[in-house]
Design a protein around this nucleic acid. Structure first.
Lengths: 114, 114
DNA sequence: TCAACAGTTCCGAATTTCTGAACTATGGAA
DNA sequence: TTCCATAGTTCAGAAATTCGGAACTGTTGA
């Protein structure tokens, strides 16, 4: 398996962020991740309620989110822990993520201020 | 020619906005439109500096922008006047457009005094 | 060493995007 | 009116992207 690619903060492109979040399925995944306190695994996020995302599609969604700079994934044992990079991202693109999640009506919690 | 479709404000979908603005070429067009006081025509916006967008591609860009709810197009004589719907949109999705244009570095903002 | 499991990669089918060419709509001139 | 020029749209086929089942990889535990 190839090592997972994560762009450096300064290499994150707005078009990649917008593209990644132009898919409601990915937004749902991202919003769950942003809301969950636990590092969300892929399989924990596969169930969208009305449909279960196939494994390969899910893996691709995570890849898009990861390579756009929205999330950080690291293998932990047999599974993959994913977390958002929202604090970092908000530095680089102030207000962007919050405005997007608000637009989707998916803003889960107020941003952490720690 | 088919009549041009514009979604009603309440039918505008965030995914359509994000998708439309996930293409830097469309962002450039939109930003020029937002900046220009005159209603920008298609041909006036075709020149991106480093490349001239083909007519048919340009027409498609405008269609995507229009059908996502970002712009309003109306024929005026032989040409098409386009204007942004940013005031309306900001009501529906507060802060979204501004955050996006800022992220792209395309918003002529006043310098922060931090 | 083997089995179970989480997730990735592969690959073919379906969908979408791109753009040159043809077409439509409008206005102005003869 | 008829013809021409201009602005933009639509068409069509090639290229690129997305989707998802099947096969594969890496890890843990027995």
């Amino acid at each position: 398996m190839r090592p997972l690619f994560h762009p450096a903060l300064e290499d994150i492109k707005p078009e990649a962020i917008l593209y990644a979040l132009s898919d409601p399925e990915r937004v749902a995944i991202y919003a769950k991740l942003a809301g969950a306190s636990s590092g969300g695994t892929c399989s924990a996020l596969a169930d969208l309620g009305d449909r279960v995302i196939p494994k390969s599609s899910l893996s691709n969604h995570f890849k898009v989110l990861r390579e756009s700079g929205l999330i950080l994934s690291e293998r932990q044992g047999v599974e993959m822990r994913n977390q958002t990079r929202c604090t970092e991202l908000d530095e680089r693109f102030p207000g962007l993520i919050k405005a997007i999640l608000t637009a989707y009506g998916q803003l889960p919690v107020q941003p952490k201020t720690d």
